[in-house]
Simulated assay, not measured.
Amino acid sequence: MTPKTFFADLDGESVGDTALRRIRSDIIRGQLRPNERLKLDGLRTAYGVSVTTLREILNRLVVEGFVVAEGQRGFEVAPVSEADLRDICELRLLLECHALRRAVQLGTLDWEAHVVSAHHKLQSVEAKLIGGAPSSVEQWVQFDWDFHHATVSACDMPALMATHSNVFDRYLRYHLQALDFRGKPAADEHRKLRDLVIARDADQAVALLTSHVRAGMEHILATGRFT
């Protein structure tokens, strides 16, 4: 599974695949706002695909939880709410904790190196944010995904991993709309999680991941943007 890419086009994509990824990304990043009506004529111009292709894309995004179909009224961007974030958080934990146990059991030396490398990039951005240097919270969100994905990437269950990727996208949507970094506690937890994963301590890693994700959720909710 490839890392999240919010900006650049990917080689080998069809026009429809590119439009799907761009629309999903624009919803996750808040360029298309919650509850916004998705008018086909405007989308056709903005994303360069036919109305037929757009309908297929939007119906797929309905299944993924990013778009709501309003019967004869068409499509709208899915709303956001505290209840929805809490639901997504628990689903993420259900999937990610199981994937983490499998990864710890099956991971190779290359997997360990991948975890360390992903954490190094994340730690670099976190240090800048903590130190008050100009840095992008959106970039931190990208590297946060890269690190958490690295920790579970040795899991041998493709269906679980695909579902986890979708749920993580929905979680990222809240992160990117809040755009607020939790600071040193989050950075410390990432470092400890790296160490526990490399030490193959699945029980402690899962316990830390659980508290880490829930603390992040509460931090997002504390911004007051989703009540």
Rank of each mutant, 00 (worst) to 15 (best):
K4P: 08
F7T: 12
D9A: 04
L10N: 08
L10T: 10
G12E: 02
S14Q: 09
S14N: 06
V15H: 04
V15T: 09
A19V: 04
R22P: 05
I27V: 13
I27Y: 05
R33H: 06
P34H: 03
P34G: 02
P34M: 04
E36K: 15
E36S: 09
E36F: 05
L38D: 00
K39T: 07
L43N: 11
L43C: 01
R44A: 01
R44P: 10
R44C: 08
R44I: 02
A46D: 08
G48S: 01
T53W: 06
L54Y: 12
L54W: 07
R55Q: 01
L58M: 09
R60Q: 11
V67P: 03
V68T: 07
V68N: 05
E70L: 13
G71I: 11
G71K: 01
Q72N: 01
R73G: 01
R73N: 11
F75K: 10
V80D: 08
L85V: 15
R86M: 07
R86V: 07
R86L: 10
I88G: 10
E90C: 03
R92K: 14
C97K: 10
H98E: 00
T108K: 07
L109A: 10
A113Y: 07
V115H: 04
S117C: 06
S117W: 09
K121C: 00
E126D: 04
L129P: 06
L129K: 05
P134F: 00
P134T: 01
V137L: 00
V141H: 05
Q142P: 02
D144N: 03
F147Q: 00
A150G: 09
T151D: 02
V152E: 03
V152M: 03
C155R: 15
D156C: 06
M157Q: 13
A162D: 04
V167D: 03
D169K: 07
R170E: 02
Y174G: 14
Y174W: 02
Y174A: 08
Q177I: 07
L179Y: 12
D180L: 02
R191M: 11
R191F: 15
R194I: 07
L196M: 13
L196S: 06
V197L: 11
I198W: 13
A199H: 09
R200M: 01
D201C: 12
A205V: 15
A205E: 07
L208A: 10
L209G: 15
T210Y: 04
S211N: 13
H219M: 09
L221V: 04
R225T: 02
T227Y: 11
